[in-house]
Amino acid sequence: MRILITNDDGIHAPGLTVLEEIAREFSDDIWVCAPSEEQSGAGHSLTLNRPVRLQKFGERRFAVTGTPTDSVMMALREVMGDAPDLILSGVNRGANLGDDITYSGTVSAAIEGALAGVRSIAFSQVYSHETAGTDAEFAAARNWGPKVIKPLLDAQFPSRTLINVNFPPCSSDAVKGVRIVRQGFHDYARGSIVEGKDPRGQRYFWFGLHAIEHTLDHGTDLEAIDDGYVAVTPLQLDLTHYASLDTLASRFAE
């Protein structure tokens, strides 16, 4: 089985190393093509206003001076030759839950894979201040990742769908299991804006990542993580709100 690994935290991110270790439990034919620098929050963006450069770091290991979407496109069209059987994106350092998936470069890399007709899974490790920067930071993802992938290897992914996986911020032993859940939604707009001044006295603004209040609707990814479960969510790329088609059509009818 041929596996492509990518992420949005960059080619040197520890979560990418964790995902490589997970992938090698299933195959020796592993390819890595990831952004050369962190691209968190890049979403499903393409680099259009400057050239994209491809850097080779070793056999089957490449970096792209662009976004996660750029990385997947370059891997499929320039690097690999034959298409992969599976695309794994992550392991992101931080959650990609609820409406945050629309910002996520990690999920967007898997979206690009799904658009290309390749089974694609995004992985994120929910952040914990207690384990940040330690060997335990990705422990839940490292130990539970293979348990999530194995049942999906022979599963048929419907066209233009992907799987989004989030691991709870606890020790591997404390994880209660896996829940298949729907996407939740936060109650308020994401994050905050922090204002400051640079050394020359000019104002700048930094988008903050403060905790967001949310209601834990039953059966959502937000609830599953809060309860200590791995959240597995199937996503679809068809954003059409079908129930509105006839209503809107009537407004434009002659």
Rank of each mutant, 00 (worst) to 15 (best):
V165W: 01
G145I: 06
V126G: 08
R142A: 15
S104P: 12
D135E: 11
N166D: 07
A95K: 07
V64R: 00
F138A: 10
M80Y: 07
T102M: 06
P146M: 13
N49C: 09
S89I: 02
D173P: 04
T134C: 12
G105T: 09
T67P: 05
R53E: 10
G66D: 03
A75T: 08
F57P: 05
T134W: 09
L115M: 15
P51W: 03
I149V: 11
D100Y: 11
H129C: 09
T69I: 11
L48T: 15
R60V: 00
L162M: 14
G66H: 02
V181Q: 00
R61Q: 04
E130R: 12
G43M: 00
L76K: 01
R182K: 14
V165L: 04
T102N: 07
S159I: 12
R179C: 06
P168Y: 05
V165G: 10
V72Y: 11
A140N: 05
M73E: 13
N164Q: 10
T67W: 05
A116D: 06
S124H: 03
S89L: 04
R60E: 00
R50C: 04
R179W: 12
R119H: 00
S128H: 10
A139S: 15
N166L: 07
V175L: 06
H129V: 13
R60A: 04
R77A: 10
L153M: 15
N92D: 07
I87Y: 03
I121Y: 01
I87R: 00
G94Q: 03
L97E: 09
A140Y: 05
I111S: 04
A42V: 08
V126M: 10
K147T: 08
H44A: 10
E130S: 11
S159E: 15
V64L: 03
A122C: 08
R53H: 12
A63F: 03
L48S: 14
A83I: 09
L46V: 12
P169H: 06
T134Y: 10
F157M: 00
L153T: 11
A141E: 13
G94R: 05
D135C: 07
P51F: 02
S172T: 06
V181K: 00
V64D: 06
I111V: 15
P169M: 08
I163P: 01
A132C: 10
R53C: 08
F185L: 14
V52G: 08
K150M: 10
A114W: 00
P146H: 10
R60F: 00
S120R: 09
F138Q: 08
T106N: 06
H186D: 09
M80K: 01
V165R: 04
G177H: 12
E59I: 03
K176S: 06
L54Q: 07
V118A: 01
P146N: 12
L152V: 12
G113M: 06
N96Q: 12
D82P: 07
D135G: 05
L152M: 12
R77T: 14
K56H: 14
K176C: 07
I101M: 13
H44S: 05
G81R: 03
Y127I: 11
R77P: 01
F185N: 13
A140P: 04
F185I: 13
S120F: 04
M73L: 15
D82H: 11
T47A: 04
